[in-house]
């Protein structure tokens, strides 16, 4: 009986420490709690109590295309809104495609704020910090490269695409206090992050 109850008590204690807000005590105890819970009982319930975004995210896609012997750049095309609206196509069991854009938006936001912090570092430390940041986000940007290559392929079928670039922007939601204002307020777009030109990856499933 005791053998059965002890792991339960250990799990309960670890779970409480793991989910406790940061405090001098929790900082000291989080290491052992992690050893008990990770990886199989890893949990993050902040997702359940989010501060809802007060803006909508937008992603503009541009492509470099080989056209008649010269390279041309397409006009930016907004691609996120259509994906975010896709669940309305079948409300009973909606697609999970917006989850991809949500993940990309989060990555771009975290990367942008980390990059801004790096810019404030002494010049001697900047290069190494930037290299470490790029290494940390390597897999995420590879994912984006493949995703936007597939989107560009569907936007420009048959074209010889050379590279793709994504620009992340946000548009604030009309604030609660202005919701009934007439004419309806127009919120300005705010740039968040622009990726470098990423070589086109052929063969990604559509």
């Amino acid at each position: 009986m005791i053998l059965g109850v002890l792991p339960v008590l250990a799990f309960m204690a670890a779970c409480l420490v793991y989910n406790a807000p940061q405090s001098p005590a929790s900082v000291r105890l989080i290491g052992p709690a992690r050893r008990v819970l990770e990886p199989y009982f890893w949990q993050d319930w902040q997702l359940f109590g989010p501060t809802p975004g007060t803006s909508n995210d937008l992603v503009y896609l541009q492509a470099r295309i080989q056209y008649g012997g010269e390279t041309v750049e397409t006009a930016p095309v907004e691609v996120e809104e259509a994906i975010d609206r896709a669940p309305r196509g079948f409300r009973i069991n909606p697609t999970k495609l917006p989850g991809i854009m949500l993940a990309f938006d989060q990555t771009s936001s975290h990367y942008a704020s980390a990059a801004t912090r790096i810019k404030k570092l002494p010049a001697a430390q900047r290069k190494a910090a930037q290299a470490a940041l790029d290494k940390q986000y390597k897999a995420d940007f590879e994912e984006m490269q493949r995703f936007f290559s597939a989107r560009a392929h569907s936007l420009y079928p048959g074209a010889r695409i050379l590279a793709v670039q994504a620009t992340f922007k946000t548009r604030p939601i009309v604030s609660f206090s202005e919701r009934y204002e007439s004419p309806h307020p127009k919120e300005k777009l705010k740039g968040l992050l622009q990726t470098s030109w990423m070589p086109y990856v052929p063969g990604v499933a559509q």
């Binding site: 319930w45 902040q46 989010p50 501060t51 809802p52 975004g53 949500l102 939601i173």
Partner: peptide, 30 residues
């Protein structure tokens, strides 16, 4: 534990305190 944590994070969120969280959630495109 999940609900306690979720309630805790919400109660410290500005838009939840202001009572406008549902307004903003209902206007997120996704």
């Amino acid at each position: 534990v999940l609900y306690l944590a979720a309630g805790y994070w919400k109660i410290f969120g500005k838009v939840w305190q202001d009572g406008v969280a549902m307004y903003y959630i209902s206007r997120e495109t996704e």
